[in-house]
């Protein structure tokens, strides 16, 4: 591993100042489950590594604030997956967090880190999109709330500005009842990177939100307000055109070795239909 300068700011202001000063030469270190691999294989060669884990404002915490559940940037997947409020209000996020890597990985990897890497295959991204989550960023110009859907650009690229640091992920507590589920395809049952990752949520006013990843440069959110998908009595023929519109933006890379585009697109449809059924069932079960 090449050497670098290591900084361990204690306050958010310090971290922002460091980020502003070093720009792209700096990398933030949260859980390290992605960054340390890149430091070792040389695909990341930052001059400065800024460890954010001592920043008071980022310390692991999940709390409610003004109708939102706020998950601090230092919160790891294990705690997201096991948190009672997450499981109750955002079960698909808990499901997604619970399948990110192994126990060892989930004990280090943060939800914010998963979002900031902006991997198209990020397992938590679809559920965050379905739940209308926002990224809270602190920067030289103050605090911004960026809807997750406006945050992802492509793998490794987000709409964060220079000097901005993500402090939390916020999820609006649902005003309406919703049934939701996270599903994925992998090459084995043990932990693996997803070749399709998908979340479907159906709410009590028959709006269906479907988000998916690993089939294009960034995760995608699609919304059906026609009520057709949410209707348990709707026929497959009625649903098909809606699904097709929803999946029209999927464009899996032919370069991937994990699955062919053909298979991914087929599985997107299989998972979409299965997830919809489960979401409807869960809504019905309350």
């Amino acid at each position: 591993m090449h050497t670098f300068a290591y900084a361990r700011p204690a306050t958010l202001a310090e971290a922002v100042a460091l980020l502003e000063a070093h720009g792209p030469a700096a990398r933030l270190l949260a859980g390290g489950t992605d960054l340390v691999i890149r430091l070792r294989d040389g695909t990341a060669r930052p001059a400065v590594v800024i460890d954010v884990k001592q920043i008071a404002e980022l310390r692991p915490a999940i709390h409610e604030d003004g109708g939102r559940l706020v998950i601090s940037a230092g919160t790891v997947m294990t705690d997201v997956a096991s948190d009672e409020r997450v499981r109750r209000s955002f079960p698909a996020l808990a499901e997604a967090a619970a399948v990110v890597g192994s126990v060892q990985i989930r004990n280090r990897a943060t939800l914010a880190g998963n979002v900031c890497n902006a991997s198209p295959a990020a397992d938590t991204a679809p559920s965050l999109l379905v739940y209308d989550a926002a990224v809270v960023a602190e920067g030289p110009d103050g605090t911004r709330r960026i809807p997750v859907d406006d945050f992802f650009v492509r793998s490794g690229v987000t709409t964060l500005a220079r000097g901005e640091i993500v402090t939390a992920i916020e999820l609006p507590l649902p005003a309406r009842k919703m049934g939701a589920v996270h599903m994925r395809r992998t090459r084995r049952r043990g932990h693996d990177l997803a070749s399709v990752t998908l979340c479907c949520g159906v709410d009590e006013v028959e709006v269906t939100r479907l988000a998916y990843g690993s089939v294009g440069p960034r995760p995608v959110l699609m919304i059906d307000e026609s009520g057709v998908l949410a209707d348990p009595a709707a026929t497959d023929e009625a649903k098909a055109p809606i699904f097709e519109r929803m999946f029209a933006d999927a464009s899996p890379s032919p370069r991937s070795m994990r699955a062919s585009p053909e298979y991914r697109l087929a599985m997107l449809r299989v998972l979409g239909a299965r997830a919809l059924r489960t979401a409807i069932d869960r809504l019905a079960q309350g």
Binding site: Y6, R8, L29, G32, T33, V36, I37, V49, D51, K53, T78, S102, V103, Q104, I105, N107, R108
Partner: peptide, 13 residues
């Protein structure tokens, strides 16, 4: 108290 892959934790952490 939590298991980690020590290959992905910098010593300074």
């Amino acid at each position: 108290g939590r298991i980690v892959d020590s290959c992905l934790v910098l010593a300074v952490e």
